[in-house]
Write a protein that binds this DNA or RNA. Structure first.
Lengths: 165, 165
DNA sequence: TATATACCCTAGCATTCTACTCAGGTTTAA
DNA sequence: TTAAACCTGAGTAGAATGCTAGGGTATATA
């Protein structure tokens, strides 16, 4: 079983999408700045998210990504599944051929654990995360940071333009 | 978070120990045969299990490993913790410094998941696994396989001895 | 129609981890 | 004395991660 930065990034990016769902298509460049995730890496993750029909894209200027359905209907387990191959805790992919074609001693234990984790993550929708107070606070902090950086970039541009003109 | 063959092997080996607890110290060579785990690899895992005071060793012929306390008091979570560094699902080790020193958007979610998994594995003792019917059946199968292989090896030895004499 | 924005795709790469082998020890029962 | 067993450290092939580089292609806007 794997739950690494890859899956965490995917969920974080999807949550960013859900939090800004009212602002039209969201560009990966924006997510990259707010969540501090490499743009190229995001592109690779979103390729898989799109293949799994979790997001839809709009190309061209002003384009970006949108959730392919309401955030109530997207669950964390689906996102992790889309980028990691699975959240299966067994070695045999649940088939029971973990020791020489037959089941190993602890096969049933890992099956139980897989079910436990899957049930837990399947019960958490993006909408329920958006509704959480602690997450809203973090989101506001990140939005402010981005606005601040944008303002700085703009003033830099004005100075450069002025000195050139 | 990592739950790979490493942690699974450790739990399997510890369960083998618990299942044969009445037979005195159990050699790694025996576990290696029954569970089909490389002997050298087992030695490395048991080094960690011993450091974490989950097993005690008896050196010399007839030696092997014993559980350091009753199987009722050894939990799967402790075993996985001993060989993997942790079953923590966050990126920051729970400290909350996952995005530039502050918490990332999904920090709280991974904390919840870690707690969930830890609670689950902390509730499962070796004794409770030994008591399971499905595990007893697998164990009997593996013991029979080993006895059969042993008998074959013995008869081979007799033939070799006879042809030499 | 030109241009810039943004998505899309493939290849490669440093690093880390896994699972394992090898080659040596040391302890101790018989 | 011998051999069974534990103990230790070094090394290694292969896979995965997280990321960079360098190209595309679609499309809104001027």
């Amino acid at each position: 079983m794997r739950l690494t930065t890859k899956g965490r990034y995917a969920v974080t990016a999807m949550l960013d999408l859900a939090l800004h769902a009212d602002k039209g298509p969201i560009s990966l460049a924006g997510i990259s700045k707010r969540q501090e995730i490499s743009l190229s890496y995001l592109e690779q993750l979103f390729s898989k998210l799109r293949q799994n029909d979790l997001v839809s894209s709009v190309r061209g200027p002003g384009g970006g990504y949108r959730l392919s359905r309401p955030s109530e209907d997207i669950y964390v387990a689906q996102i992790v599944d889309a980028v990691n191959e699975s959240i299966d805790a067994t070695n045999c992919g649940g088939s029971g051929s973990c020791r020489n074609g037959a089941t190993c001693l602890t096969h049933h234990l890992w099956c139980d654990l897989s079910e436990q984790i899957h049930d837990f993550l399947s019960g958490i929708s993006l909408a329920s995360l958006v509704a959480r107070k602690d997450i809203q606070e973090v989101s506001e902090r990140l939005d402010k940071e981005e606005a601040l950086q944008q303002a700085e970039a703009n003033s830099m541009q004005r100075i450069t333009a002025a000195s050139l003109g």
